[in-house]
């Protein structure tokens, strides 16, 4: 009969996802470090106007190429603009692109992946299109898309999202293909549950954990792609400071003012590292083969 000790063991029932999440963070200090750095960067981007910054676009030719750690923390560039202000405001672009691309490509990929995983004929069709998209290097695809449209932040997000979608679709499709063979999905079918409801109730919640991990990697790679695009002059328009185009503008002055590349470069590396550490921690924690103690 029902065993008594089990009752006292867990007086309140919490969702297994949340339990594993908490457990994960406790056991992965690097993930916490990543989360802290990422949150700090987000705070920096949000609070940019109140962090002792000046107008990042204000030009002052008399004060050009001042070295860092003097009057200007990060020095000034060849037009006399304050690099510190430009880097802090640049965080807005990188984080916006990273998070927006991660969110958009995950949602779009999820929707397409769920359909392809469950409907045979759609699968063959959509996956060939996705294979086609995947055969083009993501940066090249984004450059091609940017060449077709005018430079703006929205177009950058769109171009990078489009090149990231196939990877999410592949992941979701493989998850759905394995989940639909799970006995609890068979049980739902036997219980008379419709396909739509089975997808929402049984398949979707079980794709969240791996998608979260994939989302962090996409966020990191989108920030790098944005910088590459800006560096090549095919990304964020020059009137918006982004880490990529600060580095792009400074590359000709690299030998006399290396700090111009150093500061945005360090910020980009740090943010990407933070996001990746967070993603690794989540993956270790949410992967049942690596860490399931229940």
């Amino acid at each position: 009969m029902a065993s008594a000790p089990a009752v006292t063991a867990a007086p309140r029932s919490v969702s297994p996802t949340w339990l594993r999440f908490k457990d994960a963070l406790r056991r992965h200090p690097t993930a916490i470090a990543g989360a802290v750095v990422l949150l700090a960067m987000i705070a920096l981007a949000v609070a940019a106007p109140w962090l002792g910054t000046v107008d990042p676009q204000a030009v002052s030719p008399v004060k050009r190429l001042k070295p860092p750690f003097g009057e200007y923390w990060f020095g000034t560039d060849m037009l006399g603009r304050d690099v510190y202000s430009r880097v802090v405001y640049g965080a807005r672009v990188s984080l916006t692109v990273g998070l927006a691309v991660a969110l958009a490509s995950t949602l779009a990929g999820l929707a397409i992946g769920l359909v392809t995983g469950f409907i045979r004929w759609a699968d063959a069709l959509v996956m060939r299109v996705m294979d086609g998209l995947m055969s083009i290097p993501p940066v090249l695809l984004a450059i091609a898309l940017m060449a077709l449209t005018k430079a703006s932040l929205e177009n950058v997000v769109f171009a990078i999202t489009l090149s990231e979608i196939p990877r999410v679709v592949r992941l979701v499709r493989s998850l759905v293909l394995s989940l639909r063979e799970q006995p609890f999905v068979e049980a739902a079918m036997a219980a008379g549950t419709s396909i739509a409801r089975t997808l929402v109730r049984h398949i979707l919640p079980n794709t969240v954990a791996p998608l979260l991990v994939q989302g962090t990697y996409i966020c990191a790679s989108a920030m790098i792609t944005e910088s590459i695009l800006s560096f090549l002059g095919a990304g964020t328009p020059p009137n918006i400071p982004s880490w990529g185009n600060i580095m792009a503008e400074a590359r000709s002055l690299f030998q006399i003012a290396a700090y111009l590349i150093l500061f945005p470069g360090v910020c980009l590396s740090l943010t990407v590292l933070a996001v990746n550490l967070l993603g690794d921690g989540l993956r270790d924690a949410l992967d049942p083969r690596l860490a399931r103690r229940m």
Partner: peptide, 20 residues
């Protein structure tokens, strides 16, 4: 299906881990 139900072999994988 209402009249014809099933009990599966594996009591672990036949219950969705994310439902109460």
């Amino acid at each position: 299906r209402r009249e014809l139900q099933v009990v599966f072999q594996d009591p672990y994988s036949s219950l969705n881990p994310r439902l109460r």
